[in-house]
Design a binder for these strands. Sequence first.
DNA 1: GATATTTGTTTAATCGTTTAAACACATGCG
DNA 2: CGCATGTGTTTAAACGATTAAACAAATATC
Lengths: 342, 342
Amino acid sequence: MKKKVSLKDIANKVGVSTALVSYVLNNKKTGRIRKEVAAKIKATALELNYRTNQIARSLKLKKTFTIGLVVADISNPFFSSLARIIEDEAYEKNYTVIFGSADENAEKSYKLINTLLDRQVDGFIIAPSEEGESNIKYLLEHDIPFVLIDRYFPGIETNWVTLDNYKAAYDATKYFIGGGNTRIGLITYDTTLFNLSERKRGYEDALKSKNIAIDKLWCHELLYSANIEQAVKEAIDELLILPRPVDSILFASNTIAFFGLKYIHSKGIQIPGELSLITFDEINASDLFYAPLTYIKQPINEMAQLATQILLENINEEKELVQKLIEAPLIVRQSTLPTHTQ
Amino acid sequence: MKKKVSLKDIANKVGVSTALVSYVLNNKKTGRIRKEVAAKIKATALELNYRTNQIARSLKLKKTFTIGLVVADISNPFFSSLARIIEDEAYEKNYTVIFGSADENAEKSYKLINTLLDRQVDGFIIAPSEEGESNIKYLLEHDIPFVLIDRYFPGIETNWVTLDNYKAAYDATKYFIGGGNTRIGLITYDTTLFNLSERKRGYEDALKSKNIAIDKLWCHELLYSANIEQAVKEAIDELLILPRPVDSILFASNTIAFFGLKYIHSKGIQIPGELSLITFDEINASDLFYAPLTYIKQPINEMAQLATQILLENINEEKELVQKLIEAPLIVRQSTLPTHTQ
DNA sequence: GATATTTGTTTAATCGTTTAAACACATGCG
DNA sequence: CGCATGTGTTTAAACGATTAAACAAATATC
């Protein structure tokens, strides 16, 4: 690699000290510096194509203008969309984003966070994994600014931005009921992640609110580790084999929905005639299906922008905690029965 | 933020110089250091939870163990999948990845590359945008290690890893012909990007090889800037309105294929009876379609791993150029007619 | 016993910035 | 004139690590 141009090179060429060069290029002490000298320094910097070495700058300032983004898997469209917005937002404010995938694995997450800390990131945006509390507590103890996104831990006082999972599930379930469905299935993951338990709670409360007795057999919780496609198939079979089969299913994630729809489709079940469907998260795969899925839309832009803003504010000054539930719209398409007025 | 533990803190606590601490923690001069002292230093480092400040280390070593990843858009599943593999590969070798999206925009790309250079990245993996040659030349001139991925510029001598677009298009077109198709459409972008022009060339050569006269009206090149969905619709309409309509279409990208399939589906055209389809890149959306698309699979893992390996080798020593075309398998599904033996 | 070698550790410079403090010189003021 | 103030620039320390070179003490060699 070619040798890079440093402040010293400019200073030597102009015949001044590096201090003066630094002052000029950072527009400090503007009142005190002779105009001709300032102009000459600026011209020389341009001529030599000087670029400041952020590493040296960071060391001195104890600030890197860098944020760490930790998600489960950057190749998941949901996370990569978040990443995109976060990066745009950060870029505008002259921050740079370093990312890593933690694979829903607390240990990898811990290592990753430490790696990024070694790199002296100024703060984090984290979509924490299950069992990830200890990582979060570690950051809290060390007073490192961070914002949780998409998920959070109800027992820990942190900044977070998520969608209102409870309300979204509640609304979706009510929407089923409004369309005449009365036996409503839920396929979700077997996990302690708060956002998923909120989805379940919303679903249950909606049923209760309409005095529908909940049948335990309506709810299937899939093991993460399992073969998801197979697990979804079995769950659907069990929902449909009941003495009184379900007439609708709420999918708690787009992965579940994708496999679910694929299987339901292969069985030739009529949507929404025989079975109504709603899913969390967009699944545009279903655009090609004869009945595109009604879905709960993730407010990705809003979440990502807000999280970035909160983080940057926290980096630059001590702030109150921000905990923001964002409402998610239900996008009605053709996989649900039209609502009848009651 | 809590004050971080430095080498000096360890040195003070143990009662030795920072130099010795550094030697011990980096396992240097192992023969010369008293075992008890070394043990005490290590124990103290652990006790104080010391982590090395990579910024300081980078400044001294003039090496950051960081690579810059520049793609058009990290939220595009193709790029985020690449990112994931690159990150995994880099992480294993103790490198960290900083990324940015350049939006197929040469100026943003230029700025981004400079921002990352300011951050002293050791090298780049770049999926260059159209008109991006000047950025690449800039890197070449400054002897900065980099590898192009997915796309390259035939006129510039660089490292690159892409799929063999020519051969893939050639094979796909031949496959159409093998299935009895004789009027084969192509919908691609109007661009100078070499990988897309190679796709077109492969398509044309395959037709020539079978003595099929190419009808210019079979090939549609869409403007990037346009409303892609609308443009695809129009292209398809024009292909089907011909006096002798096409009997098959090759889509040059998954975005085009997605909108194309959506439109074809809405028109009730029978696949593959009335029209056979093949697309570049996977489009798993079509799994829910009655005729999942036959597609040219991007060898994402192989490309990303190879690119990362090449880059890291180039960072660590002067190397010969590597230019690698990777063959892409044609994954045959139900959108094409079975090949008849000839 | 004088000198060379080995062992164990420290000193000090360095990476490229930033910035408080010092400095030199000019000008203002009573 | 003597002192304060203002202007323009430099000095030098600091950020936290790495590492060549210096050093001191112990041991080996003849």
